[in-house]
Design a protein around this nucleic acid. Structure first.
Lengths: 334, 334
DNA sequence: TTGAAAGCGCTAACAA
DNA sequence: TTGTTAGCGCTTTCAA
C-alpha cells in the first residue's frame, strides 16, 4: 500500500525530483514538453501528491476545522452540507467535530484543530459562555463564529438578524389579527435567544401588545423540552391566540402537546417558529416560520474565513443576514 | 500566529529537542524529573504538537475520510454524528465530504483522501455502480463500505439485513390482518432496494400474498419523488390495505399525497416505512417503520476500519446488523 | 539518560 | 530550463 512519491516519478522520468515538483505545481520555469511528459508518467504510475508533505512546507493544510454542537441536528446538518460544498469549491476540505454542547470539549477541539494545523476554524458555539473559554485561542488561529451573535465582541461572526426576525414574526401575526401573542421557549445563556426575545419585546411595544413569556428552563432547545414546557403551559388558562416559538424544535414540541389535548393548530391556536429546519416543511407539520438562510450563512462564513486566512487580516467583521418569513399552514387569522 | 515548536521548548528547557520529543511521546527512556519539567514548560509556552509533522514521520495521520452522499439527509447526518464520536474516542478525526450522489465526485474524493493520507475511508456509496468506479483505489487505502450491501464482493462492508427487515415488515402487517400489501418505491441501481424488495417478495410468497409494486423511476428516494409517485398511484383504483414503503422518505411522500386527497392514515390505509429517520418520530407523523440501527452501524464501521488499519489485514468482513420494528401509529388492524 | 543526526515527501531559493 | 540543496517539525536510531 505504499504510495508512489515524487522521487519514484523522477527516477522513471530520468529527471531530478524538483523538476517533477515544478511540473506538478504549475511552475512557469519548465518546458511544456517535459511537463507533459512528466504529467503523463504521473498518471501511469498513479501518482497522487502527498498533501501532508506539501502542507508541511507550504505551511497551509487547506483544511478548515468545523466545530458544531451536533450534525445530528437538522439545522446544523444543512449548514455542514453547504459548508463542505463551499469550502471544496474554494479548494479546502473540512474536519468536522461535534462538541455535543460541552464547553470543555469545545476547548479541547480548538486545541486539536490547532495541532492539526487547520488553516482556520468555523465555530458554532454552544452558548454565550463558549466565547470566554476559547478566547485564548483566537489569536492563534483565524476563527469565524457562526450562528451565534457575539454582540460587540471584537471577533468575526456571521449570523442572522435575530432581532429583526422576531419583529417580522410579531408583525406577521399582528397582520393576521392576533393581539395576544405568547413568546415561547426563551432561554438564558444564548445571545441568539436574547436577541429574538428583544425583537419580540420591541415589536410588542411598538404595536401596543402585552408581552407574555414562557421561559425555557432547560439548557437547550429541543422537541422534548418544548413538549414538556408546553404541557405545563396548556394546563393553565390560555390568554393568547398565537404562540411564537423561539425555535422550530420548540414549536414542534408545542405541536405535539397541542395534539395530545386536542388543541387544533391553526384553528384554535396559531403557531409560528424560527429557523426553518427541514422538519418544518414536512407534510402534516407545515410549520410557518422565520427562516435562517442556511446556505447563505454557510457560504458567507466560509468566504469570510478564507478571506481572513489569505489576507491575514487583523480586523474583524460582523455579517448579519436578514431572515425571511416562510408561510405554511400553522398560522391563521383570528 | 506562528506556533511554538519543539525546538522553542528545547531551548527554553536547555535540553536537546529529541529529549522534548521523548517527554511528549511518553517514551520510557527519560527520567521522570526532566519529563515533568519539560511538560510544565510546554504548558507555559502553549505548545501544541504539530500533528502534520508527526503524521509525516509516523506515516499515519489519524484521520479517517468519510464520504457520504449528503449529510443534509437525516439518515446520514445521524450516521455522521456517531462516526465522529466513535472515531474520536479511538483517537481519530474525520474529514467529511459529500458526493451529492455523483459517481465522478466519488472517484475524485477517493483521490483526494488518498492525497491527504487519511488512514482509511468510510464510504457510503450512492449506488451499486459506485463500486466499480472506486475499485482501483481499494488496494491503495483501507476502505469500509457502509449502508450499501455489496453482496458477494470481496470487500468489507457493514450494513443492515435489508432482506430480513422487509420480511419483518410484511409479517407485521400480516399479523395486523393485511392480506394485500403494496411495496412502494422500489428502485433500480441500489442493492439495498433490491434486497428489500426480495425480502418482501419472499415473505409474500411464504404467506400466500399477492405481490404488488409501485416502482420508483427516479434516481433517488426523497419525499418529493415519493409524493409524485403516490399522486399517480392514488389516481388509480386501490387494491391494497397497506403500503410498505422502501424508505421513510418515500413513506413521507405517500403521507403527503394521502393528506391531499383526504385519505386517512392509518384509518383508510396503513403505511409502513424503512430506515427510521428522525423525521418519522416527529409529532403528527408518527410513522411505524423498520429501524436501521444507525449508532451501531457507525460504531461497527469505525471499529472495523480501525482494526483493518492497525492490523493491516488483507481479508475482508461482511457485518450485517439486524433491523427492528418501531411501532408508532401509521399502521392499524384491517 | 541524553544528544546528534537522518529522514518522512515536498517546495523553493540558488546555482549551473 | 534543469539540478542541487536546505528546510518544514517531528520521531527514532545510534552514539556518547
Amino acid at each position: 500500500m505504499k504510495n508512489v512519491t515524487i522521487k519514484d516519478v523522477a527516477r522513471a522520468a530520468g529527471v531530478s525530483y524538483s523538476t517533477v515538483s515544478r511540473a506538478l505545481t504549475g511552475s512557469p520555469e519548465i518546458s511544456e514538453d517535459t511537463r507533459a511528459r512528466i504529467l503523463q508518467i504521473c498518471k501511469e504510475m498513479n501518482y497522487t501528491t502527498n498533501t501532508v508533505a506539501r502542507a508541511m512546507v507550504m505551511k497551509s493544510t487547506k483544511l478548515l476545522g468545523v466545530i458544531l454542537t451536533s450534525v445530528n441536528n437538522p439545522f446544523m446538518s444543512e449548514l455542514a452540507y453547504h459548508i463542505d460544498r463551499q469550502a471544496r469549491s474554494r479548494g479546502y476540505n473540512i474536519i468536522l467535530c461535534n462538541s455535543s454542547r460541552d464547553v470543555e470539549q469545545e476547548r479541547d477541539l480548538f486545541e486539536l484543530m490547532i495541532g492539526r494545523q487547520v488553516d482556520g476554524i468555523l465555530f458554532f458555539p454552544s452558548g454565550a459562555e463558549s466565547y470566554e473559554l476559547v478566547k485564548p485561542y483566537l489569536s492563534r488561529i483565524p476563527t469565524i463564529f457562526i450562528g451565534e451573535n457575539l454582540r460587540e465582541a471584537p471577533e468575526s461572526y456571521v449570523s442572522v438578524d435575530n432581532y429583526r426576525g422576531a419583529q417580522i414574526g410579531v408583525e406577521y401575526l399582528y397582520r393576521l389579527g392576533h393581539r395576544s401573542i405568547l413568546y415561547f421557549g426563551r432561554r438564558r445563556g444564548s445571545t441568539t435567544h436574547q436577541l429574538r426575545a428583544e425583537g419580540y419585546a420591541a415589536a410588542c411595544e411598538r404595536l401596543g401588545l402585552r408581552q407574555q413569556y414562557c421561559i425555557n428552563t432547560f439548557s437547550a432547545s429541543s422537541i422534548k423540552y418544548g413538549y414538556q414546557l408546553a404541557k405545563q403551559l396548556f394546563s393553565q388558562e390560555r390568554r393568547y391566540t398565537a404562540i411564537f416559538a423561539a425555535t422550530d424544535t420548540n414549536a414542534l414540541g408545542v405541536m405535539q402537546a397541542a395534539e395530545e389535548i386536542g388543541l387544533r393548530i391553526p384553528k384554535d391556536l396559531s403557531l409560528l417558529g424560527f429557523d426553518n429546519i427541514r422538519d418544518s416543511g414536512l407534510p402534516r407539520i407545515e410549520l410557518t416560520t422565520i427562516e435562517q438562510p442556511k446556505k447563505m450563512l454557510a457560504s458567507v462564513a466560509v468566504d469570510t474565513l478564507i478571506d481572513k486566512i489569505q489576507d491575514e487580516q487583523t480586523g474583524y467583521s460582523h455579517r448579519i443576514l436578514t431572515p425571511a418569513l416562510i408561510e405554511r399552514s400553522s398560522c391563521a387569522p383570528v
